[in-house]
Simulated assay, not measured.
Amino acid sequence: MTTTTNTTSCQLSTKDRVIKGMLDTKELSFVNHVMATYDFSNAGRWSTLETRITSDLDATLKPNCNLVTLEKIIDRVISSADHTYRIIKLTPASAAAIRNAISSIDMANHSSMYQSFYPMKIEFSPGASYSEGEKLCKVADLGDGYACIFSSVFKELKRGHIAPTYEQHFHTVFVPKSSDRIELRISNSLSPTMILSSFFRLEQEFINVINISGTHLPTFVPLNIYDSIESLFNDVDEGRVQFAMMTTSEDGDDADLNGRNRKNYCARKVDVSDSINNHEYICRGLRIRYAYSTDDNTETELSVMPHKRDWTDRNCFQFSIKHPKDSFVQSEMVNKIINRS
Results as ranks from 00 to 15, higher is better:
I195C: 05
P324W: 05
E50T: 04
L217T: 04
S111E: 15
L12Y: 13
V153K: 03
K325V: 08
E205F: 04
V173K: 08
H279P: 12
A244I: 06
R309D: 11
N315W: 07
N258A: 10
G127A: 08
A244D: 13
Y85G: 13
L286I: 09
T3F: 09
G252P: 11
E123I: 03
S112K: 07
K336S: 04
I88D: 07
I98T: 02
I195Q: 13
R181P: 12
T215E: 15
N224P: 15
D296Q: 03
S213G: 10
L196G: 13
V272L: 05
T51E: 08
D16P: 02
F117G: 03
F243M: 11
V304E: 01
E250T: 10
E134R: 14
V175S: 00
K269Q: 14
G160T: 06
F124R: 03
V241C: 09
D227L: 10
V139H: 01
C316I: 06
S111K: 14
S213A: 08
E123T: 14
T37P: 08
S231K: 15
N339I: 07
M194H: 13
R99A: 14
G160E: 12
L12F: 12
S13I: 03
V334Q: 00
I78L: 09
M107H: 04
P192S: 07
M107A: 05
D227I: 11
H161I: 03
K62Y: 05
W311P: 09
F328E: 11
S79T: 06
C283K: 05
T172M: 10
K325A: 01
K325F: 04
H171I: 06
V18S: 12
S94G: 08
L286C: 06
P218T: 06
I102Q: 08
M1R: 07
N297P: 07
S191N: 12
R86I: 13
F154E: 06
K62A: 05
F199Q: 06
V272K: 01
V77C: 04
P63Y: 11
L12D: 13
R240D: 11
N208V: 01
K177C: 08
L196F: 00
V272S: 02
E134Y: 15
Q204N: 15
Y38I: 00
N335M: 01
V334T: 09
I102V: 09
T91A: 13
L70C: 05
N109K: 04
N261T: 14
S13V: 05
K155R: 10
S29C: 09
L223S: 04
F174N: 07
H216L: 09
E203I: 11
E205D: 11
P63F: 06
D180R: 11
I282Y: 14
I78P: 02
L12H: 14
G44Y: 02
S213M: 05
F206M: 11
L70M: 03
S131N: 09
N258G: 06
S13R: 08
M22A: 05
V77A: 03
S191D: 15
S179T: 13
N42L: 03
E203R: 09
V272I: 11
D326Q: 09
E238H: 05
P218Q: 02
D313R: 10
N258S: 10
V68F: 01
T51K: 15
L136M: 01
P306H: 00
E134C: 14
L184W: 01
E183L: 15
P192T: 12
F243H: 04
S111T: 12
S94E: 10
A140V: 09
